[in-house]
């Protein structure tokens, strides 16, 4: 049996009385980009939040590297190698860039934190020049890079990104997608990428999920979904 990085089976999740994700089952292998696409309100974001413990899981299981982490609270999941990058408000606007990075290394001990911060700043040198600025003074692209850097500091193995390119100018969005590919190819991370911009995301994905009304309508290679004219037209606005 193949050991997956993440293995989800029969997951039902939502918020309180509002059941949103129905019976989701899928696997993510190590060093793979799983792209999750689907129309607005199809439950993509809720799926990510449920995986990270921010939405309620009613039934089903989430297995991370062979151990069952279904009921773990978010701050524990953050400590065992998962990272989640929310779509909005993903940096502390009132804190300086330096303080944001310190917060991202909150769970690490001092020496480790110093090394990791050095490391991340060398990967994203743009942040080095902005260390003492408040995060709210950064541009949209810089903010997303800071957010990405913050998720990397704890060296997570599995990174979940919720629409990272939303509200970015096309050129900057393309640059960010490149950085996501870099996560897999150079930093050897596993990525779950939820995206509204289906084409760009499917192009870089190894595997894809198509979600429609809270259910998984397609699970398979990303390239195949990109070429599936019928599904693409109906749900993703692809031509």
């Amino acid at each position: 049996m193949v050991e997956y990085m993440l293995s989800v089976s029969n997951l039902n999740a939502g918020y309180g009385k509002f059941h949103i994700v129905f019976d989701a089952s899928f696997n993510v292998a190590e060093r793979e980009i799983l792209t999750v696409v689907g129309p607005n309100g199809s439950g993509k974001s809720t799926l990510l939040k449920a995986l990270f413990g921010l939405a309620t899981i009613y039934s089903g299981s989430v297995i991370f590297k062979g151990s069952n982490i279904t009921g773990y609270p978010p701050h524990v999941k953050a400590r065992i190698g998962l990272a989640y990058l929310p779509q909005t408000d993903n940096v502390f606007a009132e804190l300086s860039v330096r303080e944001n990075i310190i917060m991202a290394s909150y769970t690490l001990d001092e020496n480790e934190a110093r090394d990791r911060i050095e490391e991340v700043l060398s990967v994203y040198p743009i942040l080095k020049q902005r260390l003492d600025y408040k995060a709210k003074s950064l541009s949209g692209g810089e903010r997303q890079i800071l957010a990405l850097a913050m998720t990397l500091i704890r060296r997570p193995e599995l990174i979940m990104l919720d629409e990272p390119t939303a509200n970015l100018a096309p050129l900057i969005a393309r640059d960010l997608i490149k950085k996501i590919v870099q996560l897999r190819d150079e930093l050897k991370k596993t990525v779950i990428l939820v995206e509204q911009n289906a084409r760009a995301a499917l192009e870089v994905g190894d595997k894809a999920l198509l979600m429609v009304s809270g259910k998984i309508a397609y699970e398979g290679p990303a390239g195949a979904l990109l070429k599936d004219v019928e599904l693409g037209k109906r749900y993703l606005g692809l031509r």
Partner: peptide
């Protein structure tokens, strides 16, 4: 919620 995702109690 962001603080929680970063592991802050």
């Amino acid at each position: 919620s962001l603080a929680r995702t970063l592991g802050i109690d």
